[in-house]
Write a protein that binds this DNA or RNA. Sequence first.
DNA 1: CGGTTTTGACCCGCGC
DNA 2: GCGCGGGTCAAAACCG
Length: 175
Amino acid sequence: MLTSHHQDSSPMMFHVTTSAQLPPDVAGEHGQPLMGFRQDDQGLRLGFAAPSQVGQMRMLGVNSNCSKRCEKKARKPRYAFQTRSAVDILDDGYRWRKYGQKAVKNSTFPRSYYRCTHPGCHVKKQVQRTAKDKGVVTTTYEGVHSHPIQKPADNFESMLRQMQIYNPSLNPTSA
DNA sequence: CGGTTTTGACCCGCGC
DNA sequence: GCGCGGGTCAAAACCG
């Protein structure tokens, strides 16, 4: 699914070759994005991860959560990934309202449930800290946002542009 | 005062 | 049918 193009001090870039929608961006503890995705005007999906996250982050995969009858149901995509962070709630640019917390079995840490507060957008996410390594947070997104990010992410976009410059070989429009 | 978090109750699917 | 595990509701508390 992922084709990495990691260079030493620049953020890792990877191609995202999936027909599914992409999860939202994830920002770090100090505002800098840890990882994110964007789709250029030609439809190619690009992802990136901050250098500090390289080796720490791994995509856990994409599944359609098609456990049972789902032939006519609008199946919601689910995305899971792990990041190493001291805080549970990574600011990914969206507004989330916590609506539940549950202790799950075989895990010392509870799982938190969040819903996107944007009207009409019913994206949910679960956040759970890994039992053995409390530095790793597993975030699972369910659904696709039907609206742009509300948080001012001005330097975020500029950083994305910079990363394209750092990795000119990744820019398909240059060909 | 409005939005968010907290937290126990409630609900539901599943396996026994 | 019942208990368990997991997801959600909702009322109260909390907070800027």
